[in-house]
Simulated assay, not measured.
Amino acid sequence: MDATDVERFRRQLLARQAELLAVADTAATAADTVELDQTRVGRLSRMDALQQQAMSQENQRRRALELKRIVQALSRIKDHEYGYCVECADEIAENRLEIDPATPLCIRCASEREKVRD
């Protein structure tokens, strides 16, 4: 992978980071505490609000995880280690980086981790 490829991935990572930060700003209110006063909100509405809150909190968790992976990938770019697996140091296939520019693992190491989880 040459410098132009790395720069292209860096731009993609920065664009995705900006996108996630913008969504996080607008979605913060959806995860706020749900009003439990039954005189103001009916039971079904409250249950729906609690479900929406839980979904919003999970989305926030996933955004935070993706942002962390992006920051780590940008750090690897800065350290001239981008495109190499953090476990085995083999080169990560460019097609894999096209799908997920923040991926820290080659396909073999990612598959091995998945086997351990199962």
Rank of each mutant, 00 (worst) to 15 (best):
Q72R: 12
V71A: 14
D79G: 07
N95S: 14
D90W: 06
C109K: 11
R76W: 13
A64P: 05
A18F: 00
Q51F: 09
I70N: 08
A22L: 06
A22Y: 02
D100S: 02
R16I: 02
P101C: 08
S56Q: 04
L105R: 12
G83M: 08
L36M: 14
S56L: 06
Q57P: 01
A22W: 01
D37C: 03
F9A: 08
L105F: 10
A27Q: 14
C88V: 04
N95Y: 02
T103E: 13
D25F: 01
R8N: 11
Q52P: 04
V71G: 08
R76I: 11
M1H: 06
D79V: 03
R10K: 15
V71L: 08
A73M: 09
V116D: 10
D32K: 03
C109L: 11
R76C: 10
C85M: 08
Q72C: 07
G42E: 02
M47A: 13
S56V: 02
I70E: 05
V116E: 15
L44K: 03
A22E: 13
T33Y: 02
A49T: 07
S45R: 11
Q57W: 00
V23P: 00
K78P: 02
E7D: 13
R96S: 06
A22P: 02
L65W: 07
E66N: 01
Q51I: 06
D79A: 15
D90F: 04
L67D: 05
R61K: 13
R11W: 02
R76K: 15
L50E: 15
T103F: 03
M55F: 14
H80D: 11
R117V: 03
L67K: 05
E112H: 08
R63M: 10
E114G: 05
C106A: 08
I107K: 09
D90M: 12
R69A: 15
F9T: 08
P104V: 08
F9E: 10
E112C: 02
L74Y: 13
T33E: 15
D37Q: 04
T33D: 15
L20W: 04
E87G: 01
L65I: 07
R62Y: 01
Y82R: 04
Q12G: 00
D2L: 03
S75E: 14
E19S: 09
A18Q: 14
I107H: 06
I99R: 05
E66L: 12
R61Y: 10
A49E: 09
Y84K: 12
C106E: 12
A18I: 00
A73D: 10
F9M: 13
R62E: 08
E98C: 01
A54Y: 06
T33W: 00
S75Y: 11
A93W: 06
Y84D: 03
S45E: 14
T29Q: 15
E7P: 05
N95W: 00
V34K: 03
R61M: 07
H80K: 13
Q38S: 07
T29D: 15
R96W: 05
M1S: 14
V86E: 15
D2T: 04
C106T: 11
A24H: 09
D100Q: 04
R96D: 02
Q51V: 07
R76V: 07
